[in-house]
Design a protein around this nucleic acid. Sequence first.
DNA 1: CTTGGAAAGTCAACAAGGCTGACGTAAATT
DNA 2: AATTTACGTCAGCCTTGTTGACTTTCCAAG
Lengths: 164, 164
Amino acid sequence: MAETQGGESLLFLTDEQLRKGIEAMFFAYRGFTADPDRILEGKDYGRAHHRAIHFIHRSPGTTVSNLLSILGVTKQSLNRVLRTLIEDGLVRSEKGKVDARERHLHLTDKGQMLERELSDAQRARMRAAYRAAGPAAVAGFRQVLEAMMDPEMRRQYNRLKEGG
Amino acid sequence: MAETQGGESLLFLTDEQLRKGIEAMFFAYRGFTADPDRILEGKDYGRAHHRAIHFIHRSPGTTVSNLLSILGVTKQSLNRVLRTLIEDGLVRSEKGKVDARERHLHLTDKGQMLERELSDAQRARMRAAYRAAGPAAVAGFRQVLEAMMDPEMRRQYNRLKEGG
DNA sequence: CTTGGAAAGTCAACAAGGCTGACGTAAATT
DNA sequence: AATTTACGTCAGCCTTGTTGACTTTCCAAG
């Protein structure tokens, strides 16, 4: 901790430090998804359904192609997930009024309930981590994550940030 | 930034802030895996091979069951990956001398080369993010990630940290 | 009004990488 | 000698990603 200025400012860029960061991402992401995964198992849904539900909740009325660009999967892949959610009455899909080719997606009450359950669990873990680490650490956490994104993803992320 | 003590210390725990953290994790993890994924596509390997290679490199001579507990998958799943890596001459598996039931895993020179290529790419992104965010942010980043892990994963993570 | 192209949806086929269950073998332990 | 451990393997299943081909619907430009 007590090092020269040069050492202090470069230490965090050694291969060893970078590797620790890589492993931290790996293990932390497992924790990050663990609780929702547990809730979803046995409900016939998976992570893909969670992601769709999250971003529909986040941007009610979003279109399919909008969702496609956020999730970064093919429409066939998304459609499979979306279809089951619509069939099961968690998501409502309605034709656009200005452009009737588009489908605007909303969560139903039932969808809202599942979204709540999932995000409560995920936020609880995040809250515990934030509380343990403190506000300064949280700011750093967000800074590094943001810098790690591809520019296109960062655009999506920031667009969502404003919207909320 | 200039807020009351109470406001400042609690702002980072609002649902809105937590949701931003959740989305940051989602988008950042995509960036995190993007470069190795790109390298591996067309080489007949995937993320699962990358993970195996990473941790064998990290702990040369590790056993199969050791790797199983780090990766958190079934032996059938790991074995499928390991078999192809051994067949292709990237990984060497040798009977334990003290306990001959165990298989000790090492990267061959060829395996080292691929490991290098993958980790160079991943470290480059991590280095850029670290540099952009600065040392204080990096410390916070690691703190929050560590707090986000399940206790068992944190144990694995810390064991690896010491070892290096 | 027709036509080109965008948005959405669908079918089929496939691959990676998870999973369970069952079984086999060698080696260590009791 | 019997049991347990570590590993490997076969078979089969699921989720979630992919490509390619095709249709329907609809807006907008010619």
